[in-house]
């Protein structure tokens, strides 16, 4: 597991690029691709001395990353146009928000779907406007549809019929079945406007959501990138506002995300060397399981440790759903797989 260690050392600035051999670099490149972080690494090392072939590959990755960022921001612009006629306001989330706000973690960050937050009372209207503007349902399975609407924190995903890009319309930042329930009203009320004309979450909310997305919203796939987001966000916010950690504490409490945010901060410290204030700078023996999951990729870029991944998959469902519901969901999934 040298490659993943090199990757995090390079990102954290703990390792001189000149010390890596050709074999080390190809391991780093493979792992960075596996974590969807090649362009992010390329930005981080833009001014570092590099072997010529690596410098060329990183140049390509930055250029392609810039194109991908434009494409992601264009989806936000098209959603804005679609929702503008009905004056439906929305807040950008995750990667697109970081790019729209010009935050440092957006440099080379891969952005998949467009995630937006719409106040729950506007969800129906937003859905209509998007359907009118060329988005369509991805799946028409009635069980999945009901599942999304009743239990998740979003509409079933929509895909644009000509641009082939997905939009996820959320009305809160964690599934409603999740055992913690963030306060969506506070998220919307305190949202801020970027210079590019899009609303994004306030800094503390953005960090809370980043932590929730990392730890409470899935099986930690792509976890290293999400942790990098959290690390860059909190580092930059603290640099601009020395009281940020205190503000983040209060906000995490309000959303019921204190444990999640603190764990994300400890992982950012352990993986990327983040400096934490005294009351955040604790030890929790369970963190090492999360570390193992985050760094479970071998030198050939393979996501390893199958059992650990399964455990996290079950854990992520457990977090999201009360046990009764979980049993029913897994049963239905299983039966449908059997039927195919």
């Amino acid at each position: 597991m040298r490659a993943v260690q090199h990757l995090i050392d390079l990102l954290a600035g703990r390792c001189e690029t000149a010390t890596l051999s050709a074999r080390d670099w190809e391991g780093v490149i493979g792992v960075a691709r596996g974590e969807a972080m090649l362009a992010a690494l390329a930005h981080r090392l833009e001014d570092a001395p590099l072997p010529a072939p690596v410098a060329a590959l990183f140049f390509d990755a930055r250029a392609a990353g810039a194109v991908a960022t434009k494409q992601a921001l264009w989806e936000a612009e098209m959603a804005r146009r679609a929702l503008a006629s009905e004056r439906i306001e929305f807040i950008l989330l995750k990667g697109t928000a970081y790019a729209a706000a010009g935050l440092s973690c957006a440099a080379g960050r891969q952005i998949g779907d467009l995630d937006i937050l719409v106040p729950v009372h506007d969800i129906g209207r937003a859905e209509n406007e998007l359907l009118e503007a060329g988005w369509e349902w991805v799946k028409s399975d009635p069980y999945d549809d009901a599942y999304y609407r009743d239990h998740m924190h979003e509409l079933p995903p929509l895909i644009h019929k000509t641009r082939d890009r997905m939009i996820d319309v959320h009305h809160t930042i964690l599934p409603q079945t999740h055992r913690t329930t963030p306060d969506p009203l506070a998220l919307v009320t305190d949202a801020v406007m970027t210079e590019s004309g899009f609303a994004v979450l306030a800094h503390a909310d953005m960090a809370c959501h980043s932590a929730a997305h990392l730890l409470a919203d899935g099986d930690m796939q792509g976890g290293l990138r999400n942790l990098w987001d959290f690390h860059c966000l909190t580092r930059d916010f603290v640099a601009a506002d020395p009281d940020f950690w205190g503000r983040l504490d209060a906000r995490a409490d309000k959303h019921g995300l204190r444990a999640v945010v603190h764990r994300a901060a400890r992982l950012a410290r352990d993986v990327f060397g983040a400096a934490l204030p005294g009351d955040w700078d604790r030890r929790d023996p369970r963190d090492r399981w999360f570390m193992r999951r985050l760094l479970a990729r071998d030198d050939w870029g393979r996501a390893g440790d199958f059992a650990l991944r399964q455990a996290f998959y079950i854990r992520s469902h457990w977090l999201r759903m009360p046990p009764q519901l979980l049993a029913r969901h897994l049963w239905t999934k299983w039966r449908r797989r059997g039927a195919r």
């Binding site: 074999r23 080390d24 190809e26 490149i29 493979g30 072939p53």
Partner: peptide, 11 residues
């Protein structure tokens, strides 16, 4: 080109 790291990995 032994000193050149690979651009792409196949498994």
């Amino acid at each position: 080109d032994p000193v050149r790291p690979a651009d792409a990995t196949v498994r």
